[in-house]
């Protein structure tokens, strides 16, 4: 009996790995494998004009937490790195919360359309994203600028007296990030809500549950896998976002993505950039696994 179980389990494991192999092979070839190059680079010396010199150095790694003051050569905490990191985390969290708050109702709306119309609504939500991120970001800028249509409408209806200064503020970055990352929340949520058995709601109402109770006790727990997927897809890429903060924020405040980019570009410190991104990779992977574990704590499989 137990050997049968063992055999079934072994077969199960084989299938799991076999089915994952194409994806893993592709990733190993074009994403994870080449990262080893970056790992090696993090232990080298920066070249005078970018790139690296083949001489071992730990300065890339020490540079993450400590910086040598350029003027008096004393070592101190790298407070610039820390404030940039903290800003990115804060903004990513806010973006995730807001995309969820508006994305959940939207996904619910799409998933409760008649089956024929659902595909059309799904397309409608993705079509704006068929224009690339630069065009979209410029278009958003067009809408929120002082003489843009948003201010024009608000002025016209007498809601404000003077145009709101939105461009180049944190609000602008937040608006842009929510816009850009919205489909990453809506689509996974849709995929889960769509398979949701609406008879459960009927049962709930028959037991005289209120709408709020239904939402909290029935809908949210069942759609949890979608919430997890959506928030990962929004939060994590947001951390490394580069284009949106640069264009909508007016480039005055860096996010991690911009900071790492600076090291590989004008800053010409590839080892520091490499070490920073390796740190980011490890921190985010641990946080992600922890997050998924905690949320799935009540279930056996991961």
């Amino acid at each position: 009996m137990s050997s049968n179980e063992d055999r079934a389990r072994a077969a199960n494991t084989r299938t799991a790995w076999a089915l994952s192999t194409p994806a893993l092979a592709l990733l190993a070839l074009a994403a994870i494998g080449p990262l080893l190059i970056v790992l090696v680079y993090s232990f080298l010396t920066p070249g005078a004009h970018g790139n690296v010199e083949w001489a071992f150095s730990l300065e890339g790694w020490t540079g993450i937490v400590a910086t040598k003051d350029i003027f008096d050569d004393t070592w101190g905490l790298a407070d610039a790195n820390i404030s940039i990191f903290w800003r990115s985390v804060k903004l990513s969290l806010l973006t995730t919360v807001i995309t969820f708050a508006v994305g959940f109702p939207t996904a619910w709306f799409i998933a409760t359309r008649p089956p024929k119309a659902r595909a059309m609504w799904l397309f409608l939500i993705t079509i704006p994203f068929w224009t690339n991120v630069l065009i979209r970001t410029f278009a958003i800028n067009q809408v929120i600028r002082n003489e843009g249509i948003l201010n024009a409408i608000l002025l016209k209806f007498g809601l404000i007296d003077a145009p709101l200064q939105i461009t180049y503020t944190n609000t602008a970055v937040l608006i842009g990030m929510v816009y850009v990352y919205l489909p990453l929340m809506v689509l996974p949520l849709f995929a889960v809500i769509d398979r949701f058995d609406m008879r459960l709601l009927e049962a709930g109402y028959d037991l005289y549950a209120s709408r709020m109770q239904i939402l909290r006790r029935v809908i949210l727990p069942i759609t949890k896998p979608g919430i997890i997927a959506g928030s990962i897809l929004v939060f994590v890429p947001c951390l490394g976002a580069y284009v949106t903060p640069r264009i909508l924020g007016g480039g005055k405040l860096m996010m991690i993505g911009n900071f790492i980019e600076l090291q590989f570009g004008q800053g010409r410190n590839w080892p520091l950039g490499a070490a920073l991104s390796m740190t980011l990779l490890v921190v985010v992977t641990i946080a992600l696994l922890f997050y998924v574990r905690t949320l799935n704590g009540d279930r056996k499989d991961g």
Binding site: L24, L27, A31, I37, V38, Y242, I260, S277, L281, L289
Partner: peptide, 27 residues
């Protein structure tokens, strides 16, 4: 159910999300 190494698969599949584009680009 439980598959040995599933955490590794999961982490590997999600790896492209965690690294800023520029890093993958240089690699």
């Amino acid at each position: 159910g439980h598959v040995p190494g599933q955490t590794v698969i999961y982490a590997m599949i999600n790896q492209p999300l965690m690294v800023p584009e520029i890093v993958t680009a240089v690699a």
